[in-house]
Amino acid sequence: MDDERLRELYEGCYGRLIGQMFAVCGDLAEAEDVVQEAFVVALTRRRQLGQVDNPEAWLRTIALNIARNRFRRSVRFRQLLRLQPQPVSLPDLSPDRIALVDALRELPLEQRETIALRYVADLSIREIAETLGVAEGTVKARLSRGRQRLAPLVHEFADEPQTEEHRV
């Protein structure tokens, strides 16, 4: 299916699919996520979509399957929470933490992952390299570039001393 036909399909049935999935999910944001994910599937399976007689029905089926899978995962998650002996503590959502997350969103994904693993998960350079499947030098370079880009946005990174592990 070419871009123009896919765009027409999106414009023609997106709203209807949202309405249908809202009835299924009971949550508008969840319905929107499900339908958007169905269109992502359509993008990756253009050839298959181009061969079906009713593309909207095909998308609806994909969206329903996505909604079912999400529902099953949420049920399992709630079951796990009930088994949890103590309340789960949520991360501190102080203004500083929120500012850090906002600043991290400005970084490219590779730098954001590396910075988060180093400063939020407190992993070593070696552990980050193993987790991401990259060389330690790559981790150091990403940390350095990420800190440089974050420095104007988050003062904590600008003032951090460069230890041997942090040097590139």
Rank of each mutant, 00 (worst) to 15 (best):
L150C: 02
V34S: 03
A63S: 02
M1L: 10
I18Q: 07
R70Q: 07
H155Q: 14
D122N: 14
C25S: 08
P87K: 10
F77P: 07
V120K: 04
D3Y: 09
A116G: 08
M1Q: 05
L117C: 02
L100A: 07
D3V: 10
H155D: 15
R145I: 07
Y14E: 04
R73V: 14
R112G: 04
P87C: 08
D102P: 01
Q51F: 11
T131Q: 13
L17H: 02
E56F: 04
Y119W: 11
L9I: 05
P152H: 00
Q111D: 08
Q79M: 05
T61R: 14
A42E: 01
A121R: 13
T163A: 06
Q48D: 15
L17C: 04
Q79K: 10
L107F: 02
G137W: 09
V75I: 09
L64V: 08
A38V: 00
R76S: 09
V24E: 13
R45L: 04
Q162D: 15
L64T: 11
A151F: 03
L153R: 02
L43Y: 10
R7E: 07
L49T: 00
G19S: 06
R126C: 07
T131V: 06
L123R: 06
R16L: 10
L59E: 01
R60K: 15
E164Q: 12
R5I: 06
E136V: 04
V139E: 05
F22L: 11
D159H: 11
G15N: 10
L59W: 03
R73K: 13
E136A: 05
A42K: 01
S144Q: 15
P152D: 00
G137R: 14
E110Q: 14
Q48L: 15
G50Q: 00
R112F: 07
R76H: 07
R82P: 02
E30M: 11
E113P: 04
E164A: 13
E165W: 00
E4L: 12
M21V: 00
L107M: 03
I66M: 07
L81M: 07
A129N: 06
P85A: 06
A151E: 08
L49V: 03
V139G: 06
D102C: 05
E160K: 13
V40R: 09
A31K: 03
E8A: 15
L28S: 14
R5Y: 09
D53T: 09
F157R: 06
R97N: 12
V120I: 15
E56Y: 02
L93K: 12
M21K: 01
L123N: 08
V88L: 14
C13E: 07
E136P: 06
D2M: 01
N54L: 10
F39R: 06
D53C: 05
E127V: 00
I62F: 01
V88W: 11
L109F: 09
E106N: 04
Q51G: 12
E113V: 06
R72H: 12
R167F: 00
Q162V: 15
L153T: 08
Q51S: 13
E8L: 10
Q162P: 10
V40A: 13
I18D: 03
L9H: 00
S124L: 05
E56I: 01
G133D: 09
Q79W: 04
V24D: 00
F77W: 14
T44K: 15
L100I: 05
E113D: 13
P87T: 10
E130N: 11
V40Y: 12
T163M: 03
V168H: 15
L90Y: 07
V40T: 11
R60H: 12
L49Y: 01
V52F: 00
